[in-house]
Structures are given as structure tokens and as C-alpha cells.
Design a binder for these strands. Sequence first.
DNA 1: TAGATCTACTACACGGCGTATAGTTGCGAC
DNA 2: GTCGCAACTATACGCCGTGTAGTAGATCTA
Lengths: 241, 241
Amino acid sequence: MGDGTQSRRERLRAETSQEIKTIALKLMAEGGPGAISLRAIAREMGMTAGAIYGYYATRDDLVSTLIADVYTSLVDALEAARDAVPADDPAGRVLAWATMHRSWAIANPEGFRLIYGDPVPGYQPPAGGPAAEAEHRACAGLTGLVSDAWRAVGPHLADGGYQWSDFDPHLAGLVREEFPELPPEAVAVSLRMWGRMHGLVSLEVYGHLRAQAQDPARLYLNEMLDLIRSLGLTPLDLSAS
Amino acid sequence: MGDGTQSRRERLRAETSQEIKTIALKLMAEGGPGAISLRAIAREMGMTAGAIYGYYATRDDLVSTLIADVYTSLVDALEAARDAVPADDPAGRVLAWATMHRSWAIANPEGFRLIYGDPVPGYQPPAGGPAAEAEHRACAGLTGLVSDAWRAVGPHLADGGYQWSDFDPHLAGLVREEFPELPPEAVAVSLRMWGRMHGLVSLEVYGHLRAQAQDPARLYLNEMLDLIRSLGLTPLDLSAS
DNA sequence: TAGATCTACTACACGGCGTATAGTTGCGAC
DNA sequence: GTCGCAACTATACGCCGTGTAGTAGATCTA
């Protein structure tokens, strides 16, 4: 052991750790985030609840790990959807990102609650958030969309007077490294885009929108087309998606 | 008794019922929505938990009542803020509504979670939502803002092809009664406005925005000014609020 | 191969929760 | 004055997260 491969013990340990997460996600999918309980997981695995403490120091630790995993898979899906559209179609890339955002949320409402809501009874997120890395990737991805748009049509919505110091250093670092020519205003615009994509989806997932309107998807599409226009872009294919 | 005044028993009953709600809200303000527990309320009142079942059939019943109360007070605040701005300044009225929406949420984050998030461990909202009336008032209020704007500058963002049947009958009724000349598209636009106001505020309340940006209020203001412009209005006083 | 060690797990206990049931007490109405 | 009923207590059940003490077995060492 020690030569790069893991010992049998380490392998078993990693498998058990993964099984705990898998079962937790299954319980969440079946009964909502509130159904994630150490006792229920242990029951499902044929163990006692105490055994899980050998893998996660506390229930909140487990939940934080789940949040990071789920958030990462969301961002993977967003980036993949964006990259499926040619780079010379900035409007299409924004729409692809936005559409995937909503369809992922509708397909994984519990995951959405886990990331963006109160995940579980008394859960307290750790400092910096349980999935800071994934969240920064998401914000940087949005900023990339703004960058594409500005490259195509020039700055729009340039909320003036922002400094790099107005944003999280890690996020600012990511953005400046990837898009050296971009002004800090672009991050402000991208955070506003984030909010705009989040709003209707959040209302829908939590059951507020469906109580008022028959077709949330249509509202969302109209809103996203408006967003694209406000970036100065013209949607190339209005019938897409 | 029976002559309009209530008997001593009825009065005591109403007072106790109100005290339960008051204490529940206090516990929520102190420890988050998750801190609302029948046992904690009873402890605070010097009673046993079972006694509360004489007033609310179940914990979810109590929570639903709280949601309705809190939601109503939010809508009251929104309408008051709007009405403090002269009717001939539609942009100002939109901005007043939007600003109150955020400042109420920041001042009452627990109430915001109660209304728009997962309020409490295993809470399941009743059919139609726990505060349908308040929610319809909110949506109708937003539609009123759209109506003001359209009266001033003519329809913008007219997402075509909506029917009254695309929306909740009660909401549609409220709107058609109050604004007989308005087309159903206006409701679609107002729901999109709702989402746009909700997005950034929701991200901020749940701690996502503050991790990325120093000044969420500024982002929100820029976003709302953009919203006002997309309604075809020109903000009269950019320094307001 | 025999013994020491350390890991993974069980068993159990504590206090919290929502909720149901049965029993008690005292006000209100006749 | 007495009856009835509403309001409340007491208690119990099964959940929950989380500690602690103890144990079986795998792994390492000599």
C-alpha cells in the first residue's frame, strides 16, 4: 500500500462513504430534503445510526457534502448545455444555460431546495458556504456569458462604478484569469442575470407560480428572451428549446 | 351573549390563540423558522404541548396560520409603500414596491423563509397554499403597477397570446374587476416582474449573494431600474430610496 | 504464527420533537 | 346547586441527532 493504490480498508471505506451519500440522495428524492436522517440512512444500510459518525462528523457535515456534490452536478449540466451551442451564438448560449437551469430545477426540485433553500430542519451552513467552489464556477460561467455578449455587441447594462474589490476575491480571481479584458461591471451584470434566472424558477419550485399560472415554462422563456435583449443580443432562433 | 359581544370564554380563547401565534413568531425571530415547536411554545406559555391542540389541529395548521398572517403584513407594507408615491409617477410606484419588497425581506428574513421557502422541518402546505388570499393580493398589486405603466406609456413587453384561462381564476377575477381594460398579457408581465423582484432577494436572504458581492442593495437597485426601463418607463428620480 | 493494535461497528442513553389518549379541574349555564 | 363541557395535565409512542462504552474482527508486527 502507499504506492498510489489504496488498501482494501481504504477502498471499503470509500465505498461505504459513497453508499451513505447515495442513500441520502435516494431518501431525499423520495421524501424531500427533510427525509435525510442518519437513522433512516443507517436503517436502509442495515447499520445503526452511530456508525455513520465514523464517516461524517455530524449530520450537517453530510448535508454539506451532499450540497457540494449536487451543486457540482448542476454546474456541470449548465456548462455542458452552454457548450453544446456554438460560441458564435452568444444569445443561444445564454438561452441554453437559462433553459438548463430551469429544467434541472424542475427535474430535481429536492436538489434545488438543498442548494438554494433551507435544506433540512436545523442545518447551519459552514462559513463560506458548503459549495463555494461550485457557486463560484456558476458565477464565473455567467460572467463568461456576459463576456461573450459584450464581445459580440459591446457593453450593455454597464452599471457603472464597480471595483474588483466589490466582489468575492476568489470569484474575482477566477473571472480576471479567464477574461482578462473584462471590467468589474460585468460581474455585477452576471450576478443580476443569476437573480433573474433564479427568481421565477424559485417561485415555481416552491409552488407559488403554479398556483397563479398554467404555464410557468412560457413565462420563463419570455423572461429569458427579455434578458437576452437587455444584454443587447438578438435571439437567433426564437423557436429553440 | 350572542348579541355581538363575545362571552368571557370566547374572549379568553381568542387571546390564548393570539398568544400562541405571537410566541411562535417570537421563537421564529430568535431561532429561525425551525425553532417553531409546539413544545417550545407551550413551555414559554407555562402549558403542556398537548394544550395547543385545543387551538390548532396540528402543527402545520399553526404554521399555515402564521404564514397567512406574515404574508398579509408583507402585502400591507407593499401596498402602503406604493400608495405613498403619487399615482402619476408609475416608475416611482414600481420602485417603491420593489424597494419595500427587499427591505422587508432583509428586516424579516425568517418571515421571508416562512413564506417563500421550506418553513419548518416537515411542513406540507395545504391545497391552494396557506395564504392564497395574500398571494393573490400581491399579484394583483403587481398587475396594478403594470396597469399604471401601460396607462402612462402604452403596452410594452406584451408577451402575446395569453388568455384569462391561463391564470388562476381567483386572481384573474381580482384583476378583471379592478382593471377591466387590461389584457391578460398584463398578468403574465406582472408575474415576470414578481420573479424578477424575488430572484436577487431570495439569493441574498439565503446567503448566496452576500458570499459573492459586497453590496446586494446596489445590485438590486440596478436590476429594478432596468426592470422599470423594460416596462417602458423612465425613472423620475434616480437618487430616490 | 501469536500477540498487540486499531477500525468498524453495536448497544444504550439523553433530551428533543409531533402527536394521540385518558384523566382531571373548574367555569358557565340552567 | 348541580351538571356538562372546555381547557388543561399526564403519560406514552415512535421519531430524531448525538454522545459513550463496549466488542468483534481485520491488520500489522515480531
